[in-house]
Design a protein around this nucleic acid. Structure first.
Lengths: 228, 228
DNA sequence: CTTGTTATGGAATGTCGTTCCATAGTTGGA
DNA sequence: TCCAACTATGGAACGACATTCCATAACAAG
């Protein structure tokens, strides 16, 4: 009766339910229906089993979400190629990560919710390696890598939240941003001159470009702090 | 039967339940017991009423959370004093915001979850005003303000998640970080040289300092990009 | 006092995550 | 071949929760 620990993975039964199958199906549901779509009801009906069987393979829903997150992130991070310079490498990592979080918005909130996940350690490690290659002073390398990571997670969560809100209103993402832009452009120019005058930009801008511009700001700042 | 819209706020009853009282009590519960502590059960028992009465004044739980968020942020942002330079002002705003999110960790996740909140517009407006004062080129002012905001939200969500995990394990925040540091320091130095060698720093570092160092990186990068 | 509106509080509903448990499948030994 | 012992299953049961429903209390105006 001792759950399923780290035992050998050989299936003793045909059509056996496996942890991997559960995670893959979960990812499919998350991608299609978002975070709220992943219920044990939906999961067990898709897997043609009961909730109890699923719990033999996973601890709880948090475990499942963290595993799904890792299953998507791990191979994606591993395949990132090296670049000519550390700065390019960081930019490339950020770029890949953005695309990944854009395809799987649920990762943004999940990754933030379970900070001890191995996926985040791997991200930090990659960032840290490049940061060291840049030649940042040892006292600042941690802060530099953290800053980049926190920024990436911030954008990721934000995109996730936008995707979630758009889904609730059954809107396309672009239409959703259109509505935000309209609302912001109607703000009083006295009270909110900055937001109001930039509202139009919401309609036309490219999230990805803005994100990478932010990465460039941070990189520039890190390097500038280092050479001083 | 048309709920309670924007009608006049005069109470027609003594000991009247008001939206404001509900929000204040919610904030008290959130501060004491975290996000999971805020249930309609807890809320109605504290207010000595029923769930139905509460729903007369609020739309749903999301409405309540957003309102609580705003009720804390609005006065806090408004009282931020001006500083000698725009860069100092941004640093001051960041600093105040950090302390606020540290005192009310639930704001971190709530603010991220409802991006259309007025509170976020106000934050952007403040940041944008200072960014303009710095003299950033108009093409970049939006990206610059967004970068700062995304970074702040990233750190905020992360602190919120840490606080939540610490609460679940009934640990003090410092003990929680201690455990993270221990786990990270036991990582293989081959696979994770950067994280492993910085694990010790987790135990001694000051979150606040790291956060502000990140703000400085970004500011430096924004300014460097502008003067080029 | 009467009537209509505003507001209340608690019961009822439906959806979750999670646990329980009877039982089926599988393996290794007698 | 039969028999335990372990592994795994599926669905019922449970408790917590957000939300809705509804009878009725409190109030204002006439």
């Amino acid at each position: 009766m001792m759950k399923r620990e780290q035992r050998e993975t050989q299936s003793r039964r045909k059509n056996a339910l496996t942890r991997e199958a559960i995670i893959e199906t979960s990812i499919a549901i998350l991608d299609r229906d978002g975070e709220k779509g992943l219920t044990f009801q939906a999961l067990s009906s898709r897997l043609e089993t009961g909730a109890g069987a699923i719990y033999w393979h996973i601890n709880d829903k948090d475990d499942l979400l963290a595993a799904a997150c890792d299953a998507v992130l791990h191979p994606a991070i591993a395949t990132i190629v090296d670049h000519e310079s550390p700065a390019h490498a960081i930019r490339g990592l950020a770029s890949s990560l953005f695309d990944l979080l854009d395809d799987h918005p649920w990762i943004g909130s999940t990754l933030t919710r379970f900070p001890t996940q191995i996926a985040m350690i791997r991200l930090l490690e990659h960032l840290g390696g490049h940061i060291r290659a840049v030649g940042v002073h040892q006292n600042q390398e941690w802060a530099a890598a953290s800053t980049l990571l926190m920024y990436m997670l911030g954008v990721g969560s934000q995109n996730a939240a936008n995707a979630q809100l758009a889904r609730e209103q059954a809107l396309e993402r672009s239409h959703f941003l259109d509505e935000v832009a309209s609302a912001w452009s109607q703000l009083s120019a006295d009270q909110y001159p900055f937001v109001q005058s930039n509202a139009e930009r919401m309609r036309t801008h490219d999230d990805r470009d803005d994100f990478l511009t932010g990465i460039d700001f941070i990189l520039k700042g890190i390097i500038a702090a280092g050479i001083r």
